[in-house]
Amino acid sequence: MAPSKKKHASGQTCIIPGGFTVLSLQFSSDSVAQHKLCVKEHKVRAEKTSHRPLDRTLFVLNIPPYCSEGVVKELFSQFGTVQSVELRDHPGAFQHSGPQLGKFFRPAEKQGFKVGYIVFQKSSSITAAKSHPHDVPLVVSTEKRPVVTGVQKWIQQYRDSFIQPDKLQQTVDAFMQDYDKRKEEEAEQQKREAEEQQEDEEGWVKVTRGNKGTKARPHSEAANKKTLQKEIGKKKRKELMNFYTWQHRNTQKEHIAELRKKFEEDKQRIALLRAQRKFRPY
């Protein structure tokens, strides 16, 4: 099939299958080559997080390696005030695991094309970004905002790799303060829960509900032991017993040993009763 000769009209948006809008990206005003970004409003019902509001988050594909979070924020600031920018190697749900690590302790970032989640302060910025003409490129590097690439970028990364002891100490101190604060909050939370779950004078235990509305059980020693016994019973019922011949033989041996043990215990009990003259067989 011969390629289509139809061209998009000047000043109009370019929409491709999947609901993505194509935006042109140009490294500098002198560059001839252009890069294409695919943007779409982020609408994922399963993601119930405040970090990516469904009405103010723009999903961006094909972000080149020379565009950092700061560069992406400056590029899309022309459509409205940008609240936050998140760049990832692959699309997925927001993950927040523990405290934020300093730059000295983060793993090396992969150099490649990324996907981004841009959160605006107003929902009208999403419409402005999607209605941007495809033939008007977004310029990455300007005189006011130069972007370093190539050898100059490697030199800058090499200089930044040297760690200053005072800055490292400040980062470690801030991390430990945040860690101690979180531990104190967890200890207070556990103390409050323990006080709520203590038995009152009449032996009643107050049972509260969890975060998702599920009924929470009291974390007492008796309740934990009872739950553990239930789990052990379920596990035993699910096990396939006496499937092989050696399993059946071992089961019989254990049963005989248990009967012999009970027999010896009964003999000792009878002997004790006879010694106390309380044994009355008739």
Rank of each mutant, 00 (worst) to 15 (best):
F113N: 12
S123A: 14
I126L: 15
S125W: 04
K167H: 04
A129S: 09
D135F: 08
P146C: 11
Q169K: 01
S141F: 00
A174K: 10
S161D: 14
T142Y: 06
I126P: 06
M176F: 09
Q169M: 04
Q170H: 06
G98N: 06
V119A: 10
G150A: 01
S131C: 10
H132T: 02
I126A: 09
G112K: 07
W154F: 07
S161Q: 13
V140S: 06
G150N: 00
H132A: 12
Q121M: 13
D135A: 13
V151N: 00
K153I: 00
P137D: 11
W154K: 07
K130G: 11
V119Y: 03
V136G: 06
I126H: 04
K130E: 13
H90Q: 15
R159A: 08
M176H: 08
F162D: 14
Q164Y: 00
K122M: 12
I126G: 05
S97W: 08
H134L: 10
T127E: 13
K114Y: 02
I163A: 01
Q164G: 01
Q152F: 00
H96T: 12
P165Q: 05
V119L: 09
R145H: 15
D135K: 06
T127N: 12
A93T: 14
H132W: 11
V115N: 11
T127K: 15
A108W: 04
R88Q: 14
F175R: 04
Y179A: 13
F105S: 12
R88Y: 07
V140F: 02
D173I: 04
G102H: 02
K122W: 05
